Simulated scan of single mutants.
Amino acid sequence: MAASTGRTARPGRAPGPGRAKKDAVAAARRPEVRLPPLVPYGGEGLEPDGDYDGVRFEGVDLAEASGPGARFMDCALEGCSLDRTELVRARFIDSVLTGVRGVGTDLAEASLRDVEVVDARLGGVQLHGAVLERVVVRGGKIDYLNLREARLKDVVFEGCVLSEPDFGGAHLVRVEFRDCVLKRADFSAARMESVDLRAVAELDIARGVDRLAGAVISPAQLMELAPAFAAQIGVRVEG
């Protein structure tokens, strides 16, 4: 019988499940939208503080419509025109926006919760001060997206192109960028917690590289961003 050494294992020497969980990036919780049978929209334009529940807007021209404070619950917007549509402080809950298009859509201070945005073609969308929770933006292209001072929690940008998005002063918690293109992104004064940039197809940060604390990037992205990091801390790199 082998003699006992009398030694006890030291706790915390090997990485256990607890440490693995601590080091892992918290994944965003995706929306689970299950729309009920919908009623086709039969009106014209939008109403301020309007209440739309279980409505399908299919191919509706909402250009220059004004519906500040409107509430959309269990709704589907499909192929709608949103040129200069005013939806300040609007609320979208358990809804799907598919193939919407437009320039200058005003969603300032809007609230999006459990929402899917699919194949959108938008430009100059105003979402400053907005609150996005459990939102997926999949496919499509959005130019000059204004998310300044917005709050994003459990948001996924997937397979889309974001050209010159502005996240200045925004608070991002559990936000994922997957197979998407970020061109000339502005993260000035942004705050990040569990932001996953590793799967970005193209990462181009114009401003705010110093605000990436709380984000996770890949080794390859680190090499690409090295000149920007060096410039931020005043390091000159010469051959």
Rank of each mutant, 00 (worst) to 15 (best):
M1T: 13
M1P: 04
A2M: 03
A3P: 00
S4V: 02
T5Y: 01
T5R: 05
G6D: 04
P11V: 12
P11A: 13
G12D: 06
A14R: 12
A14N: 07
A14G: 02
P15Y: 01
K21L: 15
K21R: 15
K22Q: 14
A24C: 01
A26G: 10
A26S: 13
A27G: 00
V33L: 05
V33K: 09
V33I: 10
L35Y: 05
P36C: 08
P37Q: 12
V39Y: 08
G42F: 04
G45V: 03
G45N: 05
L46A: 10
E47K: 15
P48E: 12
Y52A: 03
D53F: 13
G54Y: 10
R56K: 14
E58V: 10
A63T: 11
E64R: 13
A65G: 06
A65Q: 03
S66K: 13
G69I: 01
G69P: 03
G69C: 02
A70W: 01
R71V: 15
M73S: 14
D74A: 10
E78T: 10
G79K: 04
C80V: 04
S81W: 06
D83M: 01
E86H: 12
E86N: 13
V88Y: 14
A90G: 07
R91P: 01
I93C: 09
L97H: 03
T98N: 12
R101F: 13
R101C: 09
V103F: 00
G104R: 09
L107S: 04
A110V: 06
D114F: 05
E116F: 08
E116Q: 13
V118E: 08
L122C: 03
G123S: 14
G124L: 06
V125H: 01
V125C: 04
Q126Y: 08
G129S: 05
A130F: 01
V131L: 09
V131P: 00
L145F: 08
L147T: 07
R148P: 00
R148W: 03
K153F: 02
D154E: 11
F157M: 05
V161W: 10
F167P: 00
G168N: 13
G169T: 09
A170W: 07
A170E: 06
V173I: 12
R174Y: 05
V175H: 02
C180K: 07
C180R: 06
A185C: 07
D186I: 12
S188P: 00
R191F: 02
M192S: 08
V195Q: 03
R198E: 06
V200K: 00
E202N: 04
E202M: 06
L203D: 01
I205Q: 02
R207N: 11
A213G: 12
S218A: 09
P219W: 01
A220E: 15
Q221R: 08
E224T: 13
E224R: 14
A226L: 15
A230R: 15
G234P: 01
R236V: 13
V237A: 15
V237M: 15
